[in-house]
Design a protein around this nucleic acid. Structure first.
Length: 553
RNA sequence: UGGGUCGUCGCCAAGCGGUAAGGCACGGGGUUUUGAUCUCCGCAUACCAAGGUUCGAAUCCUUGCGACCCAGCCA
């Protein structure tokens, strides 16, 4: 059944929520949250979660919080907090409330005390090695720590002193007392507090013990009144713990954790460690390098928020591990840009063309449309003169089969301008083609020549009027679909992932275009003005090529 | 060999007992002053496999097979 009521497609989470609403669960409320850890930049995989959580909230008239899971100060920083907020907003979402798990440290501590008083948690002096040894294995039950039966009074005393800073880092931990024989490893008395004298980006040095994720996340959700706590598949095994904590604590709310399969995109990696390595070892130029799968990288490449949102919708939402082909993302980018990017002409690898029968000092301003299908986007004027530049690829001394561009003795249409004929090829002493001598047909401006058909159309710029530019062509960062499968992912970094073209010339209307503005360079692709641009030298990043159905033999 | 989860077209993905949606990719036709866009057509007798229940099964049952996740004082 299809309905047009909701813009977002059906999926299993919406089925769950629809049913919850039907049976009156959560008083009809839908409250979600996007809970990143501020220990790195957001990437395309996060975008899926962001679109999901904010999208669900919007679709059900609910709300979505942005909550930083900042329980491990060793890896987290305010720089990441700022970057994450910037990226979420750029993607087009507004959070209902901005929260931090650290906002709840005091309550979390109180809840821990309650757990101890209920005999559901104990202070353990086991070392990490002992704990590992006593945890058992996937097929063998674990063994109880000698501290497991410590008295409640002693646990309370020790925990209080842990907070007071009486013990060294790692000397004690607080553990939930659940079941050392559970087939679910997460239930074998998981650590819920550890002593760590690390400065926290928000709470400073107020704390020397920090709560663990499993303990913190569920309580944070409950405190915020989250109704549907959506996370990725690897947390499925943690759900019993999530529920255990909230059940034992009798929290006023008990959110439902729902897991979905995280995004896996061919030819990309999203491991924070590996992404960081690419940046640190200079395989890319920073976190916002257009080859990076980060939101910042996609943005700098010229990808639009709308394209990313569309992508996240198209790929679906299930519990199946799957790999999305790059083509899907590229399709979404092209679809949005085709609709919204203004057209322009840019010659990436120039070849001079002199039009012998065109007046020496004449310049004509030709009016061309900014978008072939959308006249409302207006027109602009482009100077045409005796000497122009065309793409080297658009001329062939020995044309391949079905070639429909310029050849010696042949004609071609200059986009938005006249039809020209190539009369002579000029070469340098090394035999390189350096110039074409052509003639134009004055009677072909805005109309087809009579008695003959010109099948090719090529783009051009006036040499004297063109704006100088550097164009950066980006290709996929890896040479294999799944770099994570490699023993060393660095061995499959694409050595040709970036091609820098110097000496490009773009039409003068592009001079001074704003950073991040996007254009379709006709016949070559979509490009975005890079922040490295200067008044003299503009810099463009290629977002994606145009589709090319021309099958060269 | 413990527990959790998942198997529908090359890649995603609907489907929830009534006889296989849709998208991407791919192939072909048309339009076009972008080899773009747009448009039309084609693209799973078949749903991991094998049994079974049923008038009827991708959907229910059984047994296999395959894949992914879990033994951090990470999230």
């Amino acid at each position: 059944m299809t309905t047009n009521e909701n813009a977002t497609p059906v999926n299993f989470i919406r089925h769950i929520i629809d049913n919850d609403l039907k049976i009156g669960k959560n008083q009809g409320q839908v409250v979600t949250r996007f809970p990143p850890e501020p220990n790195g930049y957001l990437h395309i995989g996060h975008a899926k979660s962001i679109c999901l959580n904010f999208g669900i909230a919007a679709a059900y008239n609910g709300t979505c919080n942005l909550r930083f899971d900042d329980t491990n100060p060793e890896k987290e920083s305010d720089e990441y907090v700022q970057a994450i907020m910037r990226d979420v907003e750029w993607l087009g979402f507004q959070w209902h409330e901005l929260r931090h798990a650290s906002d709840y440290f005091e309550q979390l501590y109180d809840y821990a005390v309650q757990l101890i008083k209920d005999g559901k948690a104990y202070v353990d002096s086991s070392t990490p090695e002992q704990m590992r040894a006593n945890r058992g294995s996937l097929t063998e039950p674990g063994k109880a720590s000698p501290d497991r039966e410590r008295s409640i009074a002693d646990n309370l005393d020790l925990f209080t002193r842990m907070r007071a800073g009486e013990f060294a880092d790692g000397q004690y931990v607080l553990r939930a007392k659940i079941d050392m024989a559970s087939p679910n490893m997460n239930m074998r008395d998981p650590t819920i507090y550890r002593i760590r004298r690390v400065h926290h980006q928000r709470t400073g040095d107020n704390w020397c013990l920090y709560p663990m994720y499993d303990y913190t996340h569920c309580i944070s959700d409950a405190l915020e009144g989250i109704t549907h706590s959506i996370c990725t598949l690897e947390f499925e095994d943690h759900r019993p713990l999530y529920d255990w904590v909230l059940d034992e604590l009798q929290t006023p709310r008990h959110p439902q954790q729902i897991e979905f399969a995280r995004l896996q995109l061919e030819y990309t990696i999203v491991s924070k460690r590996k992404l960081n390595q690419l940046v640190m070892e200079k395989h890319v130029n920073g976190w916002d390098d257009p080859r990076m799968p980060t939101i910042a990288g996609l943005r700098r490449a010229g990808v639009t928020p709308a394209a990313i949102r569309d992508f996240c919708e198209r790929i679906g939402l299930t519990k199946q591990n799957s790999w999305i082909e790059m083509g899907v993302l590229e399709y979404c980018i092209r679809e949005d840009l085709n609709e919204n990017a203004l057209r322009a002409m840019a010659v990436l690898q120039p070849l001079r063309v002199v039009i012998d029968n065109y007046p020496d000092d004449q310049t004509e301003l030709l009016e061309v449309s900014n978008h072939p299908q959308k006249p409302e986007l207006g027109k602009r004027q482009i100077p045409f003169a005796k000497t122009i530049l065309i793409e080297q690829d658009d001329f062939a001394e020995v044309p391949p089969p079905k070639y429909k561009r310029l050849v010696e003795g042949g004609e071609v249409r200059l986009r938005g301008s006249y039809v020209i004929r190539c009369n002579e090829i000029i070469k340098d002493s090394a035999g390189n083609i350096i110039e074409l001598r052509c003639s134009y047909d004055p009677d072909t401006l805005g109309k087809n020549p009579e008695g003959r058909k010109v099948k090719g159309v090529i783009h051009w710029v006036s040499e004297a009027h063109a704006q100088a530019a550097e164009v950066r062509l980006y290709n996929r960062l890896f040479t294999v679909p799944n770099p994570d499968n490699e023993e060393n992912f660095l061995t499959v970094v694409n050595p040709n992932s970036l091609e820098i073209l110097q000496g490009c010339r773009v039409e003068p209307s592009l001079s001074g275009a704003a950073i991040e503005s996007r254009y379709q360079f006709e016949r070559t692709g979509y490009f975005c003005v890079d922040k490295d641009s200067t008044a003299e030298l503009m810099v463009f990043n290629r977002t994606v090529t145009l589709r090319d159905n021309w099958v060269k033999d």
